[in-house]
Design a protein around this nucleic acid. Sequence first.
RNA 1: UGGGGCGUAGCCAAGCGGUAAGGCAACGGGUUUUGAUCCCGUGAUUCGCAGGUUCGAAUCCUGCCGCCCCAGCCA
Length: 560
Amino acid sequence: MTDSAPRDFIRQIIHDDLESGKHAGIVTRFPPEPNGYLHIGHVMSICLNFGVADETGGRTYLRFDDTNPGREDEEYVRAIKDDVRWLGFDWADRLTHASDYFGRLYEAAETLIGLGLAYVDSLSADEIREFRGTLTEPGKDSPFRDRSVDENLALFRRMRAGEFGDGELVLRAKIDMASPNINLRDPALYRIRHVTHQTTGDAWCIYPMYDFAHTLSDAFEGITHSLCTLEFEDHRPLYNWFLDVLQPPHRPRQIEFSRLNLAYTITSKRKLNALVTEKIVSGWDDPRMPTIAGMRRRGYPPTALRDFVRRAGVTKKDKLIEMGMLENCVREALGDPAPRRMAVLRPLRVVLTNYPEGQVETVQAANHPNDPSMGMRDVPFSRELWIEQDDFMEDAPRKFFRLKPGGEVRLRAAYIIRCDEVVKDADGNVTELRCTYDADTRSGEGGSDRKVKGTIHWVSAAHAIDAEVRLYDRLFNVANPNTADDFHEALNPASLECVAAKLEPALADAEAGVAVQFERLGYFCPDSGDDAPGARVFNRIVTLRDSWAKLEKQELAGQG
RNA sequence: UGGGGCGUAGCCAAGCGGUAAGGCAACGGGUUUUGAUCCCGUGAUUCGCAGGUUCGAAUCCUGCCGCCCCAGCCA
């Protein structure tokens, strides 16, 4: 992170502000509303806000934007803290809430009234909407717009005292009902809400609106750069208006960047919530969810997510990033550290007819082909084995170099075998392969350098551990389900497949959250929620790149 | 339609008047007891389009086109 080369326009601005002496240090904030779990889009914001502060020796506040009691919840603040920490960021003692400032916000509102820049409106919500005008027509002044300062102050104090019901009165900024920017047409500042707040309890019955609370919270905390997404660009004039008229000691600058959208996922909290409440997924941390909690449970390393948003970049252009980009980051993060193991997802029995019944030998397999320091492990080998159903084909195309009738294949870290006989059930399904092994070809020994086209993985039947393995696919079938009329129609019905797999014994001590590579298949880890000693459950984090699958697909397309 | 923003390869993205970085994907080839990894190599005569300024334009000017956001007492 050399600051000599800012990576994006925001870091450029920050770099310039430091250079010019405008700021001695950088202060940012990540301000989630605790009404849902954090998702991949938030990862961008978290990495940006904490990232620029870390890079410049600055500070970042984790501030809960809890200005709307009733729809916010403590469960979410706990989850948000977990997620930010897991991503690798530290807010130290800078954990705040917008509600920490309710007293000062109230005073600021009275100041605005005193300045003649805010008034209490008696119009109903519907009337206010009618008076607001439209995109092309200016709005009309409220008949209550010219109440005296004293009357406004008295009314506002009575609002605060609880003398009015929800929606009866509202405090509005007095700006310009004819502004082409609708946000400036006398926006609401305070509304009445007789609801118990999750942290301030019943101390208040009036609550500040986002624009007012957010701007001043930034100012109170001495935020230098308030980084938010593009949809708030239209709010910047209002943000600056508050700063202009109230003149707080610190003047933060709001800068907007585009959201990060991931193809085949949704990042709308409302829709994510629907997936949970409608039980379409098992919860906010379902491994198919684009939530941080879901990705963590799935087994994505935090470094992969940080790498991903770094590669995506910070700009103002709408982006819809391919899933392959994220998957590449995950594979890259796991490739070196993940030890290799063997597991058979869809077992097909293989009997070695020339291997002595009852005999068991131990073969040594490398824990990592590119890193000898990770050592070797023992793998039991015997007469009956499981191999992958996909690794056998009765009528194989020439380019298929796995097992076929009469053909040979190498068993990873063990022997070369030949398929002599295919056993089928009454329906013609292949149920067993009867093979012979070449005793001279044990890996690492004399004849082991004999070449065959393919190498497949296997597990000794007598020693296999049974496990449920959960195979995940994209949750949606369309690239941008955010824009679908009804996201339910875009759901991928095959986003989860559970298989009864056979694992090599070394997998017995696999730990939750620690990724291993099942050779030739992908990266997996025990599920942090459902894995248990007697009933192992593994998640597939991501598949390996599969150029055979690609080839197959092309052939199919060629035939079609 | 008023206002705000954005258009550089399939997806991201550098570029800041001097002749189009990089990543992902794709496609060739090499190594390989994971069809993985790794290693080489291949893409824009052109930057939404059209004009203009300039010796020189993705960069400056004008016009047009396309896409996104805004009419919550949500954030």
